[in-house]
Structure formats: structure tokens, C-alpha cells
């Protein structure tokens, strides 16, 4: 907005108001949040990156640069590949997060599609019901599942009797061991992140032109064919957005695996936290953090790359 920048206040008017009306005030609007983010976010990010090249020392704070080690110490990154703990933690995180994302898509897609097919009044109520659990405490939602999954809860006893009824008597169980497994982690992740999948998908599906569906039906397509050939391809942007919104927090998750996960198979968030707080190894914790960030940024970059390409193709086709 060029008009804001070149102020036309006569120079004789002084005081706060005229000062605001000059260029100064737009500078304030930009500079205040900018400086805040530079200090409290960007600087801390730079510290993590720099720390990942530091050397651990028994001092406080526990790191140093230079000395007997070179200024750039790559030991942290070497250990990432040498110690199987880190590779296993990365694998556990990625596998758990991928399964959770896939399940969210499987449950969330029909739910989002269903939301577009109900009446307007119902839609607003149901959308509110999707968002409501998201506003209540995250910790308490995890906690609710701890109650359900524990060995003598009504939920676990119900599932156990169904299990015992279905399988041969040799396999009968007194209770299903759900707590402290990767299954529990994935289940609670799906529960916690499902709204992140439903909302972008709904936003995408709502915008689709329903007449396309009707045209396909009129031309003799069956409902499933309409879905496969029309709705699904057009909703890919929504699927990708929802998938990223679920996968990224799930891969770095700390609370869920700490509460319901298997502690002998830690996820990467737990490893970072332990390296930092328990082992007081800041450089190693930072190396793992940088590696995790790279792992998360890669799918983002791929997405923006393909998105830009798709946009270009859209432009080429009239």
C-alpha cells in the first residue's frame, strides 16, 4: 500500500497523531512483532543449530566451542548414524506418525464428506462438535484414553469378552494389554489429531462444484465411480494439507508416547527431551532436533514444490 508510506501530513502539524500518520507508524506495526520474533524465536533457532556443532563439557552451561575439539564438532551427527537408538527412535516416530495419518485419512475423509452432505443447520452443529474436543485440554484427552485402556476398565473388559468370544479358547485373554504399546500411541494420536484432518478436508470438499458429481451421474457413473474419478482427484490438496497437519505434530509428539507408549521403544521427541534434561547433553539433543526438523521440512518442501507445479499447470490450461 504505497499510499500509507508516503504521508501527506503538512509538516507544521506536530504531536503524536501526526507522527503516527507519517511513515513511522507503519514501521512500528512491522518492527514490533518482527523484533520480538527475531529475539525470541529466530535467535533460539540459531542457538539450536549452533549448539548441534558444539562440544559437550561438564561445565554449566554444558557446552563449549573450540578448545581441543575443532570449532565445528560433527560428533553429534555421527552418533545419529552410529548409535542404533537414534535410528530406531526415528523409525518408530515415522512409522507411528504414518499409520496415524493414514488412519486419520481413512476415518476423516468420509466424515468430512458426510459433513458436506448434511443440511446447513446440522452442519454448523456437527462442525462445532468436531472442534469442541480440540479446545478442551490435550493432556486430558490423552488421560481419558488412559482410563479407557487400562486393564480393568469397562472398555477393555468389553473388548476382551468380544475377543474371547471370537478366537479359540486357547487364545483367551484376561485383559487386552493396550497400555504402553505402539498401538496405544497410534490410537491416541488418531483421536487427538483427527480434527486436523477433518477441517481442511471439509474446507476443500465444501468448495467442490456439486454439479460435477451430478453431471457424472447423469452420464451413467455409479456413485463409487463418481467418488473415484471426480471427488477424490479434486480433493488431493485437502488430503495433503490434512496429512501434513497430522503427520508433523505426530512425528515430534512427546506427551502421548510418554503417557501411553512403550518406554523401551521411545519416539524421537522423548529422545530429544531425555538427551537434554536427563543426560544434559545439549549438543546431542540439538543434533537430534536439527535432524528431526530436516525430516519434517522435507515433506513440506516437496509439497510446496508440487503445489507450485500444479498451479502452473492450472494456469497453462485455459
Amino acid at each position: 500500500m504505497a499510499a500509507i508510506e508516503q504521508s501527506d501530513v503538512p509538516p507544521h502539524r506536530k504531536g503524536l497523531v501526526s507522527w503516527f500518520n507519517r511513515r513511522g507508524w507503519s514501521d512500528i506495526i512491522i518492527a514490533t512483532p518482527y523484533i520480538w520474533l527475531l529475539v525470541f524465536f529466530f535467535l533460539s533457532f540459531i542457538i539450536v543449530v549452533a549448539m548441534s556443532f558444539a562440544t559437550r563439557t561438564p561445565t554449566a552451561p554444558p557446552f563449549s566451542f573450540g578448545g581441543e575439539h575443532p570449532l565445528i564438532n560433527l560428533d553429534g551427527y555421527k552418533r545419529l548414524f552410529q548409535d542404533s537408538l537414534y535410528i530406531r527412535a526415528f523409525l518408530t516416530s515415522v512409522v507411528n506418525a504414518l499409520i496415524a495419518t493414514a488412519l486419520c485419512l481413512l476415518i476423516g475423509y468420509p466424515m468430512a464428506l458426510g459433513l458436506t452432505r448434511v443440511s446447513r443447520a446440522w452442519r454448523n452443529i456437527l462442525l462445532m462438535l468436531v472442534i469442541l474436543p480440540f479446545w478442551t485440554s490435550f493432556l486430558l484427552r490423552v488421560y481419558a484414553w488412559m482410563g479407557l485402556m487400562s486393564n480393568n476398565s469397562w472398555f477393555n473388559r468389553g473388548l476382551t469378552s468380544i475377543w474371547n468370544w471370537v478366537v479359540p479358547t486357547d487364545w483367551a485373554l484376561r485383559s487386552i494389554p493396550m497400555m504402553n504399546t505402539n498401538f496405544a500411541v497410534v490410537l491416541v494420536m488418531v483421536y487427538s489429531y483427527l480434527p486436523f484432518m477433518i477441517l481442511p478436508l471439509f474446507a476443500n470438499l465444501e468448495k467442490l462444484d456439486q454439479t460435477l458429481d451430478e453431471a457424472a451421474m447423469d452420464l451413467g457413473s455409479r456413485p463409487f465411480q463418481v467418488f473415484r474419478d471426480v471427488t477424490l482427484p479434486l480433493s488431493i490438496p485437502g488430503i495433503i494439507a490434512g496429512g501434513l497437519l497430522v503427520f508433523i505434530p505426530a512425528a515430534g509428539e512427546l506427551i502421548i508416547p510418554s503417557l501411553v507408549g512403550n518406554s523401551s521403544q521411545p519416539m524421537i521427541g522423548r529422545v530429544i527431551s531425555d538427551e537434554f534434561a536427563s543426560a544434559r547433553d545439549w549438543p546431542m539433543a540439538s543434533s537430534v532436533a536439527v535432524a528431526l526438523l530436516l525430516l519434517l521440512v522435507l515433506p513440506m518442501m516437496l509439497y510446496t514444490h508440487f503445489d507450485a507445479k500444479a498451479q502452473e499447470r492450472m494456469k497453462d490450461e485455459p
Binding site: Y34, L38, I47, M51, I248, G252, L254
Partner: peptide, 24 residues
């Protein structure tokens, strides 16, 4: 850089935000 600084905290895992703020 500014728009990057606005987007980055949204995709940063909380653990990393936590340790980086503490170190800062």
C-alpha cells in the same frame, strides 16, 4: 524472513521449541 518466522513456529515440534527457548 518475516513470513517465515510467522510460519515456522506452527510446524516446529513443541519439544524443539521448548529446548530452544530454554537454551535461549
Amino acid at each position: 524472513l518475516f513470513s517465515g518466522l510467522i510460519t515456522a513456529p506452527l510446524i516446529m515440534p513443541e519439544v524443539i521449541t521448548g529446548i530452544s527457548s530454554l537454551m535461549l
